[in-house]
């Protein structure tokens, strides 16, 4: 399946800022099940863009704008090919352990245990379903640095929290799980879901949608949790307020 995407984000500052350094994860993840066919990125006021891969294999783009500017626009577009494969992939053991935003207590581990049985796929589906029921989708209740334990306790959150809670419950059962950030057909903002490792490769699950049929999903970045792979980070000199508008389009 070939998916095309377009992304535009505009940050506006209430006053001009300078010495603006940034690091973006906006170029799709590339591996044996997602091939990057084409990619283009444009950043306003910046003519030198540097690219590197981080330790999770995510593409990162970084640079800086030293002159005063009052807005920052990132436009990307590209095509990816999603392939059907069940080839063995390497498992880094770090996805089995607690991470900064994926932690759990005995209560969460007990709930996970109640979902578990000898069939791993069934266990994962039950946990996905449990998380989908347990967490109510509500924006503004959590923030980017909310950990899974807090999200679980307050019982609401957004896609990032669904993924974190699901990851934590799986890891409490020693099932390797990782966080995925990306774009989804039909959504105009970025999304987060979960990948679970069994039978020798990674399987995608979306706890927010309670689904394992992830058609139209483009993987941008992976990590132990959201703190490993923020889609954008920036720092600048200026005491200002900032507004951000993002628009994403994915089509087949």
């Amino acid at each position: 399946m070939i998916l095309e995407f377009e992304q535009k984000s505009v940050s506006r500052f209430s006053q001009p800022v300078k010495n603006h350094a940034f690091l973006l994860r906006c170029k799709p993840y590339e591996n044996i099940i997602q091939r990057l066919v084409s990619f283009n990125a444009e950043i306003s006021g910046c003519n030198m863009i540097f690219a590197q891969k981080d330790s999770f294999g995510n593409n990162v783009i970084f640079s800086n704008i030293n002159d005063y500017h009052d807005s920052f626009t990132l436009k990307t577009s590209g095509k990816v090919e999603v392939l059907e494969t069940n080839k063995d992939t390497f498992l880094n053991p770090i996805f089995c352990y607690p991470s900064p935003l994926c932690i759990w207590d005995n209560e969460m581990a007990d709930f996970a245990l109640k979902c578990s049985n000898s069939n791993i796929e069934d266990t994962v589906k039950k946990i996905c379903n449990f998380v989908n029921n347990r967490i109510k989708y509500k924006t503004g209740t959590t923030c980017v640095s909310t950990n899974s334990l807090d999200a679980f306790t307050i019982g609401c959150g957004v896609c990032q929290d669904y993924s974190h809670v699901m990851i934590s419950m799986l890891r409490s059962l020693k099932i390797p799980a990782r966080y995925v950030a990306g774009y989804v057909k039909g959504l105009t903002v970025s999304h987060a879901w979960t990948e679970v490792y069994y039978d020798g490769f990674w399987h995608g699950f979306d706890a927010t949608e309670n689904s394992s049929q992830l058609d139209g999903y483009i993987k941008i970045a992976i990590g132990r949790d959201a703190s490993d792979c923020p889609l954008n980070r920036g720092i600048f000199v200026g005491n200002v307020s900032e507004t951000v508008e993002i628009e994403i389009k994915v089509k087949e």
Binding site: S55, C96, Y97, P98, R224
Partner: peptide
């Protein structure tokens, strides 16, 4: 992997 000093980076 559960050491605080371990940096995946």
């Amino acid at each position: 992997y559960s050491s605080k000093g371990y940096l995946p980076f």
